[in-house]
Design a binder for these strands. Structure first.
Lengths: 228, 228
DNA sequence: TTGCCCTCTTCTGTATACAGAACTCCGAGA
DNA sequence: TCTCGGAGTTCTGTATACAGAAGAGGGCAA
């Protein structure tokens, strides 16, 4: 493992899991010291993160972790909608029916999984679905475009994570998508995906607004930065 | 201007304009020497290009300029179609009608411009259209996604450049798109864009196949690399 | 007391030196 | 003649030193 990769993955993980708060200045010297690498590989890591949009270098000299606003999420979803709809259409044409039949079946039984509290297992299933979709599309450019937009939404999803009702609903939506892809029905798959994405956006937006309200209500002078 | 930016722009320009042939190994030491910068900023430039997909670092240690194949172009177009269709739909909803009315008018007169041989002026008009679209969409995420996919097609377009008939046709297609956006007709704009993209892909594909035939026919042992 | 300017500190951008790894080329053996 | 192995070379990955610039803080003047 290269030092630059280590720094990249470590920082990326910290940002995605909110261990580094939005607005935090990312000093090269400090981070290099903390991660135990020199500034050279750390610079490479920061550059990668900046190109992925996980670090904002536009204003000022030093990079900062961008905020997750309702607006930015909505914008990401406009891109995501375009790509995911195209992806499922293509997948419906090129898929191996057996793969998506199996996935549809798994999502059909996901309700039980979720009721037993195994949310991690469910997220693994969703990851398996994403991977199957990527495989079916068989387009590296589409894969990397989807990858870059999905990364951004991981941070938002971390916030909305504790919402079991929504998860049960997404299982049903995913099942519908899988069945449509299995049957080669591109337009139905696209419609089901559009429904799914709209629902996800609504949930995330509501969670964000709720969180913003929670943060401002208790006390107007409470520190919002560096919140653990 | 930073040395890393200089190296980046210089290399990017070289790759997009085919001054560096596909398959060419990009040695850090050699490039640093040629561009008159040290390896540190050059590494940063190579990293940026790699993340944009203009340099392939996946196989082997040293980066190479990826080939422009019919397959890769078709894959890029699948992504581009998804993004551009979404973009024009959003633009049709959010646009300033006057801007696209003016552009429609410009495209209506582009035929004369092209007949006088001013292809550069026409490309500038297309760039103006792209910029107006980006402005109307008003979505930074969409803008950067479009940017990254457009970059890849610049190399392909360089090959198809000398095709005046196709250019006249694209002017008409662009005019149609502008008029639909001007009128706020999202679906018509999307359809017109789909038509336009399909035509462009067909032309580029035909050019690529023609070029491949030209290269193999004259002599089987002719050097295909390092062609000036 | 407030605003401006100067100085100092700190950070980034760049160059270079060094270590480890991979590729290449040459030679020996089958 | 082909294949395998080893030495040499070259390249990348990393660390560190240095210069320039941006920002912060304090002091002085209005």
């Amino acid at each position: 493992m290269r030092a630059s990769d280590l720094a990249y993955e470590s920082l990326r993980d910290d940002i995605l899991n909110w261990r580094i708060a939005p607005g935090t200045a990312l000093s090269e010297t400090e981070l290099a010291l903390r991660l135990g690498v020199s500034r050279t590989p750390l610079r490479a890591a920061l550059a990668r993160l900046a190109l992925e949009g996980l670090v904002d270098t536009s204003r000022g000299r030093t990079g900062v972790v961008p905020d997750v606003s309702v607006e930015s999420i909505a914008q990401q979803f406009e891109v995501r909608e375009a790509l995911e709809l195209q992806a499922v259409r293509l997948a419906a044409r090129r898929r191996d029916p057996a793969v998506f039949a199996e996935l549809a079946d798994s999502f059909a039984h996901a309700g039980e999984t979720l009721e037993s509290g195994a949310t991690e297992a469910y997220y693994a299933l969703v990851a398996r679905f994403d991977a199957a979709l990527d495989d079916a599309v068989a387009n590296p450019a589409m894969r990397s475009a989807l990858e870059s937009v999905r990364v951004h939404l991981v941070r938002a999803r971390r916030l909305a994570r504790d919402n079991p009702q929504r998860l049960v609903q997404t299982a049903a939506e995913h099942r519908l998508i899988c069945e449509a892809v299995r049957d080669g029905d591109a337009e139905l798959a696209a419609s089901a995906t559009a429904v799914h994405l709209r629902g996800s956006l609504t949930t995330i937006t509501a969670t964000l607004r709720q969180r913003a309200a929670d943060e401002t209500t208790p006390g107007p002078d409470r520190p919002t930065q560096e919140g653990a």
